[in-house]
């Protein structure tokens, strides 16, 4: 039987997932600042899921509610996991072909990354959690290097405003950011794999959300400082900023960026694939995790080649994800309460 991970390890894994999206985000500082209320909203949305899932998980809870509901829900969840992994593979491939390997075929990166991530998913959550701590430390070191490297540009730093268009726009933006928080669903899937102590679980969620907010604000700030108005013309502004940073032996910090981004993406895709395996194992308990990882990895790579993956993931990130996280657990939770009172 797989051992459980600690809530801090889970928090760091989710933070690295958030980081994988933040590093290639081209949002301005005002968009990144909206992460603060957005993460508060995500935290609030996670409360019912956390209460329900911390001991036994969402699917076992749903299965005790009605056997008919759990199988379609599980398949839906597997498909969501595979689509998210596929989309992340596509984004990573797109990043590499846009910045580092302009002449290469994206398929090579889809297949290569898919194989390694499926292998990691097959090895289980524990090695990923162990890697998460050191990847987070590395992320902190890289951010410090970015700050030092971009320090010479700070003398011309303008004053930033988090909500130049007014508070209503700011909160609408925050709501959109919260809706696109895919890590919330990952949390829902992985929560039963973390040790279930209510107080520590709460601390873990707070740690993840706080780190994500700090990383978001730093990302927005650094790209604005380094690039200014030029930022809007760039697809990956932080990568451009890293390449322009002065603090490195060769005057190039984009290699550090590549290392960090690859590490974060690797963890994110592996977690989605692991999530897929975890749910599949619920449906097919006798199947070995390695086989399920191969199935999920192959599925994600195939979906990565299909053009409609982008459309489906955009749809998921437009609010369905948060609704799934927020409303999904409420039903069995209410049912349990009802059952308990009867």
């Amino acid at each position: 039987m797989e051992r459980k991970i600690s809530s801090v390890q889970l928090a760091l894994l989710l933070f690295l997932c958030s980081l994988a999206s933040l590093l290639i985000s081209n949002g301005s500082f005002s968009i990144m600042a909206a992460f603060l209320p957005a993460m508060v909203l995500v935290g609030a949305a996670l409360v019912p899921a956390f209460l329900l899932g911390r001991k036994q998980g969402f699917l076992p809870a749903l299965s005790s509610w009605g056997k008919g509901a759990v199988i379609p829900a599980a398949f839906l969840l597997v498909m969501v996991c595979l689509f998210m992994a596929a989309q992340e593979l596509r984004v990573y491939g797109f990043f590499l072909t846009s910045t580092v390997y302009p002449k290469a075929q994206m398929g090579i990166f889809l297949i290569g990354t898919g194989i390694v991530c499926a292998y990691a998913a097959g090895m289980g959550l524990e090695p990923l959690a162990r890697l998460g701590l050191w990847a987070s430390v590395f992320a902190a070191v890289v951010f410090i290097a970015f700050i030092l490297g971009l320090a010479p540009s700070m003398k011309n730093m303008p004053v930033f405003h988090a909500s130049p268009e007014g508070m209503s726009v700011f909160f609408q933006r925050a709501f959109r950011v919260a809706c696109a928080s895919e890590e919330a669903l990952l949390f829902l899937i992985l929560a039963p794999r973390a040790r279930s102590r209510r107080q520590k679980g709460g601390k873990g969620i707070s740690l993840w959300l706080s780190l994500a907010v700090i990383a978001a604000i730093l990302t927005g700030l650094l790209s604005e400082i380094a690039l200014g108005a030029y930022r809007e013309t760039r697809r990956f502004p932080l990568h451009t900023a890293a390449a322009a940073a002065h603090f490195s032996p060769q005057g190039r910090m984009d290699l550090l960026f590549l290392f960090l981004y690859t590490g974060a993406v690797f963890i994110k895709i592996s977690l989605w694939l692991y999530g897929g395996c975890f749910v599949l194992r619920y449906l097919f308990p006798r199947m070995r995790r390695g086989i399920l990882a191969i199935v999920c990895g192959t599925g994600a790579v195939i979906l990565g080649f299909l053009p409609f993956t982008q459309t489906i993931t955009n749809l998921l990130l437009s609010g369905w994800m948060l609704a799934f996280v927020f409303i999904g657990p409420l039903v069995p939770l209410l049912f349990f309460r009802k059952g308990a009172s009867q």
């Binding site: 390997y101 290569g112 292998y119 990691a120 590549l258 290392f259 690859t262 590490g263």
Partner: peptide, 10 residues
């Protein structure tokens, strides 16, 4: 370097 990084992850 992509391959080396990915190999290192594995």
């Amino acid at each position: 370097l992509y391959g080396v990084l990915l190999g290192l992850c594995a």
